[in-house]
Design a protein around this nucleic acid. Structure first.
Length: 554
RNA sequence: UGACCCAUGGUGUAACGGUAGCACUACAGAUUUUGGUUCUGUCUGUUAAGGUUCGAAUCCUUAUGGGUCAACCA
């Protein structure tokens, strides 16, 4: 409306706005997300979900969730619930009940009969090999099947017999008569029905013939009144057939629009390869936090909101693209910075003793729960003479730019006192086992009159009160950004598996307030990164997964 | 070697014949009781060659490069 701030539209939005302007479909926008229930959803699906649901939301339309279940041999109900759950978790709700292409099997059968009656479809007895042979190749026109000239009556009878189960799998197919000379292979009398004596996850043994994708998808779109049917670029060659069938059937004209699917560095989306990562034990399961699956990202602690803004920022276009995972991580940090409470956890502990702090004394220190959120309140944590600090927050011989603990140097203990490092104790191997320091009593956080300024600030956990926990840290799953790029060199993605993709701190120490935190709780471990409470946590020992590290400087 | 799709900094995406912008990344600086956040700045771009035009990233042609299509998969 406002010409002043004209937001730039992607090409799909442009098409929709043109349709809206011309009054097409009475200004209705209806999209659909059509997963095949034969695997878990991944980042690529997330993109498709965000586009389809996002567009409907933007233009006051609706989005259907429709399971594309036309192949009983690969599909299973097992995936249906997981897919629904993932869509909901991402923050979207489909229109009405979930739909299934299999809901339309009877209608589709009628459509096929209609085509036969119009002389546009025929039953072919040729073998798969013979059919492939007759189709020839893209640069050479195909030749007609010898069965193409059967009469309408014969085709009708044969097709009914196919449905009745009179023929074995693979013995006959129903094809449409389009154009065997077309340079588009999908137009060379494509198969629209095949025989499969197989139990379907929803229709059971009711059918032994099943429609092909090309005779199910577009027709389902049409039946549902889908106005804009969005799919990935690889389906572009199917569009002429999509339109041809709708026209010949004279049904609601849904429009297919193709966009480039999104690739992300260090992530793969091949169903086969993902499965292999799981079965070969490279990861612990489909929801391993290193997996690019929606369930994996959820367990990793990525907020749904961050995934949505990521898909939005990645944009929509028709050129091949690979988004850097850093953009995703940036979106994740952006959300978590505002929402995650800060906690102190020492991942690799070493003892710090404050020699001038009274033995047996203990105080409670206060700090902002989240300095970026004024409504977050504050947290409190017990302080004492002995604290755990990170091993790498002490350095005996430190470079100039190192401003943490080093003999003679000062550092602020976050939310507590400034201390001066005096010395350290080493074992027989020269390993530092304890750091000794003195504190400045008048430097307490919030009431600092010391006038001392500390170079850096470090986090800590009281030895007396700290609780052991497990912290799982994650690095990139692969050692190269695009492991798929090396297939021509004979290398597989597994050659680039990063053995350090999971690093576990079994002896981390957390502040006591973390006890009993609920799985899924997102936190910032001060100076370390964002972490989420994992469902593996027990009464005895909490388990945290690293979501993403903090950006690291120096 | 048939047809189709695509080509803007390192990555992604705008500019719809009229100043090549934004985000992420990288780097530098300021602020900071998180080496986080925030703020400021810097680097890097229209695949090429012709043509149309007062003017081209944008329109036309050709070339080059990348991708897709020949499953009874979706």
């Amino acid at each position: 409306m406002s010409e002043i701030t004209k937001p730039s539209l992607n090409f799909i939005e442009e098409i929709i706005e043109e349709d809206l302007k011309s009054g097409k479909h009475q200004g209705r926008v209806h999209t659909r997300f059509p997963p095949e229930p034969n695997g878990y959803l991944h980042i690529g699906h997330a993109k498709a979900i965000c586009i389809n649901f996002g567009l409907a939301l933007k233009y006051g339309g609706k989005t259907n969730l429709r399971f594309d279940d036309t192949n009983p041999t690969t599909e299973d109900t097992e995936y249906v619930d997981a897919i629904k759950n993932d869509v909901n978790w991402l923050g979207f709700q489909w229109e009405g009940e979930a739909l299934y292409a299999s809901d339309y099997f009877s209608q589709l059968y009628e459509y096929a009969i209609d085509l036969i009656k119009k002389g546009l479809a025929f039953v072919d007895d040729s073998s798969p090999e013979e059919i492939a042979e007759m189709k020839k190749n893209p640069s050479e026109p195909g030749i007609d099947s010898p069965y193409k000239s059967r009469s309408i009556e014969e085709n009708l009878q044969l097709f009914q017999d196919m449905k009745a189960g009179k023929y074995p799998d693979g013995s006959k197919v129903l094809r449409v008569k389009v154009d065997m000379a077309s340079p588009n292979m999908h137009m060379r009398d494509p198969i629209i029905y095949r025989i499969k004596h197989e139990t379907h996850h929803r229709t059971g043994d009711q059918w032994c013939i099943y429609p092909m994708y090309d005779f199910a998808h577009g027709q389902s779109d049409s039946i549902e009144g889908i106005t804009h049917s969005l799919c990935s670029l690889e389906f572009i060659h199917h569009r002429p057939l999509y339109d041809w069938l709708i026209q010949k059937l004279d049904i609601f004209p849904s429009r297919q629009i193709e966009f480039a699917r999104m690739n992300v560095t260090y992530m793969i989306t091949s169903k086969r390869k993902l499965l292999k990562l799981v079965t070969e034990g490279f990861v612990t399961g489909w929801d391993d936090p290193r997996m690019p699956t929606i369930s994996g990202m959820r367990r990793r602690g990525y907020p749904a909101e961050a995934i949505r803004t990521f898909c939005d920022k990645a944009g929509v276009a028709k050129r091949d693209n690979t988004i850097e995972i850093e953009l995703l991580e940036s979106c994740v940090r952006d959300v978590l910075n505002r929402t995650a409470d800060r906690k102190m956890v020492v991942l690799d502990p070493i003892v710090l003793t404050i020699t001038n702090y009274p033995e047996g004394k203990s105080e409670v220190m206060f700090g902002d729960a989240n300095p970026e959120d004024e409504n977050s309140g504050f947290t409190e944590m017990p302080f004492g003479r002995q604290l755990y600090i990170e091993r790498d927050d002490f350095m005996e011989d430190a470079p100039k730019k190192y401003f943490r603990l080093t003999p003679g140097g000062n550092v602020r203990l976050k939310n507590a006192y400034i201390i001066q490092c005096d010395n350290c104790i080493k074992d027989e191997n020269g390993e530092v086992t304890e750091v000794l320091a003195t504190y400045f009593p008048d430097s307490k956080s919030g009431e600092d009159n010391s006038g001392i300024k500390a170079k850096g600030t470090i986090h800590w956990v009281s030895v007396e009160h700290g609780v052991p926990c497990t912290v799982r840290n994650y690095n990139r799953l692969f050692t190269v950004p695009n492991p798929d790029d090396f297939e021509e060199e004979g290398k597989s993605i597994f050659d680039f598996y990063n053995p350090e993709s999971l690093i576990i701190n079994e002896n981390a120490i957390m502040e006591p307030a973390l006890k009993g935190a609920v799985a899924g709780t997102q936190l910032q471990f001060l100076r370390k990164g964002y972490y989420v409470v994992d469902a593996d946590s027990t009464e005895e020992k909490m388990v945290f997964n690293q979501t993403v590290s903090l950006k690291e400087g120096w």
